[in-house]
């Protein structure tokens, strides 16, 4: 997969520039991480607070490289059958029922159990062949001819068993299916794992990955991002709202607003034809930024103060 796109991932600078064109403004560390992941063919473990664009990064890479994005959302109770493969039980059952008569024909004339078994065995494992295999995201990613972007989303939400099970996939890009054998990737996929840090991931998993931490962006970077995503917003308003959000992030809130909330807010203000931030508008639209009533109650009385502070 990389050989095909060698020129597209020639250096971190190229990646940064091209992502920028696609509307994803990224920092040096993000560009370096994607570059290294492509070149070293190692998975990236992306961590950071919700809403800083972890999933978006994988989507953008897929779009940029023109590769299919295969996504596996993790949750508690996710198991091999849903992550890797499953036998099509229904189909197996149906076929055995339909083929009952045929089986009778085949077996006719066989003398004794030994001969019957021998004849049955000569058919091989029909019911456990590729035709009856239902590939799930991981297997799909390995089977893509031209490689794929595999996004394993919120790995921290899954059980520890899944984490251990992923180790083989992540280091050797292969999985073992007992009935069929080992399946190797036709073309190594680029793997993104994201985590919100609800639990500490195992060392073995971390060791196999490059570890990228995406923090909340600096003001200037966030400014660029808003300019890219909501270009219609005036420079003045954009600067104001980015500063405002940065002030909010300094406060002790249950959930501080992330980039995605800033973008939503910018869109909303645009829709409402707001020219400059004034306390009334901010109070009316605060629920776009803050997702807890407690937070809203903390911030509301402070709005005037914050606005005065950012105007200085």
């Amino acid at each position: 997969m990389i050989a095909k796109h060698a020129d597209k991932v020639a250096s971190p600078a190229v990646l940064k520039q091209e992502f920028d064109k696609l509307g994803y403004v990224c920092s040096d560390s993000i560009a370096t991480a994607v570059y290294l992941a492509c070149q070293l063919q190692k998975p990236i473990l992306v961590e950071g607070p919700p809403g800083v664009g972890k999933t978006e990064l994988a989507k953008m890479t897929a779009e940029y490289l023109g590769a299919p994005l295969i996504r596996m959302q993790c949750y508690e109770g996710l198991d091999e059958a849903k992550a890797l493969y499953e036998w099509k039980y229904g189909k197996q059952l149906l076929y055995t029922q339909v083929l009952k008569d045929q089986l009778g024909d085949v077996m006719r004339g066989a003398r004794g159990l030994d001969e019957s078994i021998e004849r049955l065995q000569s058919f091989g494992d029909i019911f456990y062949s590729d035709d009856f295999l239902e590939p799930r995201p991981l297997l799909q990613a390995l089977r893509q001819e031209d490689g794929a972007i595999l996004l394993i989303d919120e790995i921290d939400k899954s059980d520890q068993e899944i984490e251990a099970f992923l180790l083989e996939l992540l280091s050797d890009y292969q999985v073992s299916i007992p009935e069929i054998g080992t399946i190797k990737a036709k073309s190594k996929p680029i793997v993104f794992l994201t985590s919100n840090n609800t639990r500490e991931l195992g060392d073995a998993l971390k060791r196999r990955c490059l570890h990228l931490y995406i923090p909340f962006p600096e003001s200037s970077l966030e400014n660029d991002i808003i300019a890219k995503k909501v270009p219609e917003v005036s420079d003045n308003l954009r600067k104001q709202l980015v500063d405002f959000v940065h002030e909010l992030r300094q406060m002790a809130l249950k959930k501080v607003p992330a980039i995605s909330e800033t973008i939503d807010w910018a869109r909303a203000l645009l829709l409402l034809n707001v020219e400059t931030l004034d306390p009334q508008w901010v109070k009316d639209t605060l629920n776009l930024l803050l997702k807890y009533q407690d937070d809203v109650e903390i911030v509301e009385p402070e709005v005037r103060k914050i606005l005065a502070a950012i105007d200085k």
Binding site: D203, L210, H211
Partner: peptide
């Protein structure tokens, strides 16, 4: 940045 990706994991 690059070395940090490979060496520091939290």
């Amino acid at each position: 940045e690059g070395l940090g990706l490979a060496l520091a994991k939290t």
